[in-house]
Design a protein around this nucleic acid. Sequence first.
DNA 1: CTAGGGTTAG
Length: 626
Amino acid sequence: MSKYTLSIASSPFPQTHQTKPTPQIIQNDLQHTFKSPFELKQIHAQIIKTNTHPSILHLPHVASVCALTPCFPYARKIILLSGNNETAIWNTCLKQFAESSSPDDAICLFNRLCEYGVCLDDFTISFVLKACTKLSDCLSGRVIHGFIEKLGFQSNLYLQNSLVHLYVVSGEVDNAHQLFDKMRDRDVVTWNIMIKHLVKRGNVDDAYRLFVTMPERNVRSWTSMIMGFVKNGKPKEAIELFSKMEGEKLCPNEVTVVAVLAACADLCALDLGKKIHDFSNRSGFKTNVRVCNTLLDMYIKCGCLEAACIVFDEMEQRTVVSWSAMIQGLAINGRGEEALRLFSKMIQSQIKPNEVTFVGILHACSHMGMVHEGREYFASMSRDYGIVPEIEHYGCMVDLLSRAGLLKEAREFIKNMHIKPNGVIWGTLLGGCRVHKNIELAEEAIKHLLELDPRNDGYYVVLSNIYAEAKRWEDAARVRKLMKQKGVKKTPGSSSISLDGVVHEFVAGDETHPQTEAIQERWDTLLEEMRLRGYVPNTSVVLLDIEESEKVRFLFRHSEKLAVMFGLINTANGAPIRVMKNLRVCEDCHAALKLISEIVDREIVVRDRNRFHCFKNGVCSCKEFW
DNA sequence: CTAGGGTTAG
């Protein structure tokens, strides 16, 4: 509260020797600072006392302070007295509400404006539509639509576009199309809205067709389309489109950078990611938190934790997203203690953790076997931070317990969950059963999985592996037969490696690559040295019904091996090799890559479906905790 | 005073 308000409040009978506030003081100190109609009235009283013109008050502030209170008519009076355009003042206020974190305030205010007969214009409508869009409130939207007709704004392109956007966002597809079809004029904004609309519905192909045929494209159109590809699992297409955009001499902005970096993260395309990073710095995007967060994520997903740390340290502002990304990055790289330390630092920095932060924290615990800590953090998240655990958090707990060999406890935990367990939960338990060789529980898990997620080949494969490792070949064969019966096919293993901006992909068993011979040669040479160091091929991971020698042959053509050989051939001595795999790394490849990292004295980073394995000097960062 | 892209997990 200001000193001025205090002096009034504390002395109902102002003493004569007290200096009267001059209009200047009112203007400088108070016009922006009053926070309630009560304070406003006190100031107004002074204005009257000192015979000052009311226009000295900052009217949009007067409006927003009184808008939703019983003092609305009072504010109106002041505004009318000031001789300003009332509609413009309320519009400013509406805009502020619409852009705030509670856009429903704008809708309340709009209702009041109608109630009191305030004159509405097209700006008024546009702001209240913005609020409806933010809230996906198409019920209010329809009312506003009515106002547009009543007030004769039907042909205002801004409002038409806003309406189409609202209908699109709130899922009223038919209404959106009807409006779109009726529009006499359309501009690039209209087309961009339609692109977003299709991309939302997962219809990237149609979106792209529209993108190609629309009469005009600007940076936002390109960015939306690039983002559309990324969001729909087509990062390669996203990057291809980005190079086309560069060819058009259009300048990428912050959002474009975010989209392309996300594509790089998905593809593990570190070289392009670095280029975009340079471009971003040169363009002055360094202060943009979202750009920095996406950069962080890109470096983490490319296995460059050190680069991520530098970005993180240099950030001017860090949000909960930055901290969570970093915690997760450390966690999946087997640096759990550091992840937990970072969490403490985050709390010290007064940043409130959210549900995602705790996914990272629990990952850190489960990947390090820190059962006690994991339990404590799980309890703490709802107790200390009011975050209700979601299925992902339960999944982390099942993972934590079952990795640590506490399978029965994991089973009990699932029984006591407050949410119905999904396939991921049972699948996690199944994974634990494999590591700790518990066939009985595995069979229980698979029963649930056959019900919940029968099309997912991964679960059959794990169960079959469990049987194979226990030398129960008939059971293993039975599982594979079951897969066949249900028409479930094993997803082929596939690994990729990015070199000079080109992503090279290797599918297990592939012998068609132009460098196949060189890859084979390199492998054979390494194999000799590996055998000397004790490597024995582990064919139990091969689930095909083939001869042992064929199994070995296939094992040696696992995609991650091929990709790493390719990397060794095509990069400088000593350069790290980064490979991404679509499934989990198999045990045999894991053992082989440990040895290879030692023999060739290189760092080999493999990002698999679950985490990173950083092989260096014969050991892996996962410390055998998968 | 108007309309259309963006970050962490799964």
